[in-house]
Design a protein around this nucleic acid. Structure first.
Length: 115
DNA sequence: ATGCTGACGTCGC
DNA sequence: CGCGACGCCAGCA
């Protein structure tokens, strides 16, 4: 935390999202919570908005709402790209809903460690 | 400069 | 147990 803590929030989100292993998914709130902004889940999604501009392509398709629903699917290029990527990684999506979401869920706090 | 919206989530009633 | 309102912060009208 020696660094700033302003707009770096976005960078933090990208960082965590990039750590998501293939075939796994996480939720905006999980990331936000891990960053210490559980009430700022919206910002996580907003960060995803700019994620496409990031050099290391951020796997935003691995980030969904806590319901396992492809809420941001409509924001992809094209929208079907999201489930296509997920399906390519072994994540089954039906009706914009991830199957076995709880099983595919990847919690940064649990995988990366609380700290 | 002010206000509303937005890829969500939690708290309240 | 179901629905409503609020909070978070940044971008855009």
């Amino acid at each position: 935390m020696t660094q700033s803590q302003n707009t770096d929030f976005f960078q933090m989100v990208y960082q965590v999202v990039r750590l998501i292993p293939e075939g796994r998914v996480t939720s905006y709130g999980a990331i936000a919570k891990y960053l210490g902004a559980a009430r700022s889940a919206r910002m996580v999604g907003w960060a995803m908005n700019a994620s496409h501009a990031q050099t290391p392509e951020v796997p935003a398709h691995r980030v969904v709402n806590r319901l396992g629903m492809l809420s941001g699917k409509a924001h992809f290029h094209p929208p079907e790209r999201m489930e296509k990527l997920l399906a390519s990684e072994g994540v089954i999506v039906v009706d914009d809903q991830i199957q076995n979401f709880k099983e595919k869920f990847w919690d940064p706090e649990e995988e990366l460690g609380l700290d």
